[in-house]
Design a protein around this nucleic acid. Structure first.
Lengths: 338, 338
DNA sequence: TCCTGTAACGTAAACGTTTTCGTTATTTAA
DNA sequence: TTAAATAACGAAAACGTTTACGTTACAGGA
């Protein structure tokens, strides 16, 4: 008996007067036993409360039925909605998901990868964080499929599931332009952020210049991130220099909501005097006041898609090509209609 | 060589001309080897890129270094913030966390428990869902510690980490009373919800009656849940019957935010004409407009506390007494100051 | 000198499974 | 009737570890 006093397949075999091979065959519904013994064994399994040990099983089958998911931070809506989709897809396949938080710390990330390797995960989903060459090399040695979500890799041939950030931003600003805005500012993430910073700024710039409007660098402002707290300073920077702005494109839902708050503080009405369009399309956008018009990434579906692709890789052994997810524009109440 | 061509301890031993026992001893820094062989073995480990197999290790040690966490739904801020705390605590102990979503489905929940049992998790955190006798019986047989969070069990002796919902609600309504409100309505969850419905209504009722105000049943309204979508109907029910209300206690952040939206729709100013106090204290409350005054449960800290208690149980073998978390009232801008 | 102690290993069993071979007994075909 | 096929099992190896136990070699004490 083990420490936990859990019955093993041996206990079942002994109790049922058969060999462990027979019990195993019945559990995996192979063949090589009569219906009578099957019933009998099933009954003693029930009687003893036996449950197979996935570690022993995995040891011999070389499978853990587990994947690992890495988030820089797990406390927000983006990770939550992604996880919802991932868990859903995993559960359908009988897989479990181990959730890890990296704190965007390279050292910790490597530690986590090492841990996941020891745990024999069969695949890895890497979200919202640059997959560096170092990480890629490590995972390469792990010899399990990876897929990045809302990210990409320094290394080629790592599949990615993401929206086209530049195009999505372009569409957001186009929408503003189509509603007769010409004084459009942007609250962005840091331009040094190659994942969600720079590309969105590029989209903004392209839409502006294509519309024949002057490209004015100070019309895009940012702080150090994409959270609500980062919005305030950026908003103030923006409006101190450009009080004439009539529209803002914010690079995240939280930044957009922050902008609305700041506007209100200055007595600027949204959307009457200032239109705001967000980016992400989390549940927060629906709950904003006024409800936020956004470019939606559809995180839950994205998570599901990523997991599905990962499982395809796991089963087929061939690395997925990835997928670019179609963003959508959801019209709500934060942009003044023309 | 295995399917993944990963080197095993045998490969290391052969390459280094020692026995696997020696390699194992070095890896677990026991004693019984010279510094010279240690260096040599470490080098060949590095050279081969060897990584121990946690399943084999766990099989013999009877440990998985893994806990399971069950959420009814994983897409919201509450689960996200809880998870943040849980993951943090687990990682410190070298544990991994498997996240499962039950969809509040009893059958699925049992399936998941079975799966976690097979995976040999060493503990279970059960959140925001009633731990029925059936579940408790199953976990009892698993012989691993459980702890409920924001919930409780039909069975005695199951430790719980939660705030005192009734008291917290009482405090919320007291706060409203102290700010000279006498016409106070409540947007609640369904009173049939024994976890977060009934107790919060009780707290409301107690505060009202203790203040000498009449208990009017129609002043508490609800729909089928605690989400943003559930708020609208409840708000309308409430205000159609009681347009004189000057304050609302909402049983969740989302319901509170929903109330503010609905009020705005009716041209009611918050907080000038209507004060709103929320319950939960997620990040959403900070981002609301006006920023939401709330009873905060401190989910991240709660998750951490629950995990810490669980690990104590795992290590000591004795079942935790649980803990009731102190709620706090965070004053922001959604309640009119007296 | 011989004995004892200890450092530095190696051998092999054990963990709980799956699976490849047997090995029976029974049925079927000729 | 007999040979061959098949159904219904059991024995044992294997998966990658840890660990109890045994063994060797050498140092030090008497």
């Amino acid at each position: 008996m083990n420490r936990l006093n859990r019955p093993t397949i041996k206990d079942v075999a002994r109790e049922a007067n058969v060999s462990i091979a027979t019990v195993s065959r019945i559990l995996n519904n192979g063949d090589g036993y009569s219906q009578k013994t099957k019933q009998h064994v099933l009954q003693t399994i029930e009687k003893l409360g036996y449950s197979p040990n996935a570690m022993a099983r995995g040891l011999i089958n070389k499978e853990s039925n587990t994947i690992g998911v890495l988030f820089p931070d797990v406390s927000g809506l983006i990770s939550a909605e992604l996880l919802q989709g991932i868990e859903e897809a995993a559960h359908l396949r009988g897989f479990s998901v181990i959730v890890c938080k990296t704190d965007s710390d390279g050292h910790k990330t490597l530690d986590i990868l090492r841990l996941l390797q020891e745990k024999q995960v069969e695949g890895i989903i890497f979200t919202s964080q640059l997959l560096t060459k170092e990480f890629a090399a490590f995972i390469e040695k792990m010899a399990v499929p990876v897929i990045t979500v809302s990210s990409y890799s320094e290394e080629k041939d790592i599949p990615a599931v993401k929206v086209d950030d530049e195009l999505a931003s372009y569409d957001a600003v186009r929408y503003l332009l189509e509603h007769n805005h010409t004084e459009i500012g942007m609250i962005s993430g840091p331009p040094t952020d190659l994942l969600a910073g720079a590309p969105r700024i590029r989209g903004y710039k392209r839409a502006i210049t294509e519309a024949g409007l002057p490209w004015i660098e100070t019309k895009v402002a940012w702080d150090s991130g994409f959270y609500f707290e980062h919005g305030q300073m950026a908003f103030n920077k923006l409006f101190d220099r450009h009080p004439q702005l009539t529209a803002i494109f914010a690079a995240s839902d939280e930044l957009a909501v922050s902008a609305i708050s700041c506007a209100q503080e200055r007595g600027i009405q949204v959307p009457d005097e200032l239109s705001v369009i967000g980016y992400d399309g989390t549940k927060l956008a629906r709950m904003s006041l006024p409800a936020l018009t956004v470019i939606s990434q559809g995180f839950e579906a994205m998570g599901k898609e990523a997991a599905d692709l990962l499982f395809q890789s796991i089963e087929s052994g061939i690395t997925s090509p990835g997928a670019t997810i179609q963003h959508t524009l959801i019209e709500r109440k934060s942009v003044r209609k023309k």
